[in-house]
Design a protein around this nucleic acid. Structure first.
Length: 219
DNA sequence: AAAACGGGGGC
DNA sequence: GCCCCAGTTTT
């Protein structure tokens, strides 16, 4: 199936409608006068392999105690581990949070960088996190490809790629720029509720007529 | 007891 | 580009 710009517009608009009522409480969806770039970054790092509700709850608890790089460095490893325990992988995450905080102080004077390239120079920050931070914290263009965006972009047929990085680069070519920043929001909601990894609920989906995966399965 | 939650790094 | 990694929560 050929994907024209018209098709992409139609698909995005339909998915936007389909998912607009799904609410995922998260630090990254809060207004920018309520949350800092650093908080967005830390929350994203905590979200690794963790339910959104847990990430949100733990993030708010952490930020009551430490919401700046220096404050993160000021608390002990044990205390930090205890606070973020429920997100899982708490030893690694505590180490990452400390390292990222230290780097932001050392290299960026305590301010979270606003470019993907600079963010990527910090160990522990990869493309998914870097893109999300520039989008959510700085309102700059980016495409945050997490597992949902990767899976669904391939299912629909937006891209045909093996890994998330390639999906990001492919989407940068095929996806109109006006959709870049919201594609993650839309596809995460769609992926959590309908287009799940296993047994997707295609009966609840409104774009099956455009979906390569659905059409292949059906035929 | 098993599955779900997925991004980053090392080589 | 493939493999490895880290723990809690839910079913």
């Amino acid at each position: 199936m050929e994907f024209t710009i018209n098709n992409i517009d139609t698909i995005i608009i339909k998915l936007r409608e389909l998912t607009e009522n799904f609410v995922i409480p998260s630090v990254t969806s809060m207004a920018l006068d309520k949350v800092s770039p650093f908080e967005i970054l830390i929350s994203t790092l905590l979200s690794l392999r963790t339910k959104d509700e847990t990430t949100y709850e733990v993030s708010l608890k952490l930020f009551e105690i430490a919401n700046t790089p220096q404050k993160i460095l000021n608390i002990t490893d044990k205390e930090l581990q205890k606070i973020i325990f429920k997100t899982g992988f708490y030893r690694n995450k505590a180490k990452t949070l400390k390292h990222v905080s230290q780097e932001i102080i050392n290299k960026y004077d305590g301010n979270v960088p606003d470019s993907i390239e600079e963010l990527l120079t910090i160990n522990g920050i990869g493309r998914k996190t870097a893109n999300l931070v520039v989008i959510k914290a700085y309102n700059k263009p980016g495409i945050c490809v997490d597992t949902h965006v990767h899976r669904i972009s391939n299912r629909i047929g937006f891209v045909n790629t093996k890994n998330a990085d390639k999906t990001e680069f492919a989407l940068r070519k095929t996806l109109p720029k006006k959709y870049w920043c919201e594609i993650n929001d839309i596809l995460v909601k769609h992926g959590q509720n309908i287009c799940r990894p296993i047994s997707p609920k295609c009966n609840l989906c409104n774009i099956t007529q455009y979906c390569k995966h659905f059409l292949i399965e059906k035929n």
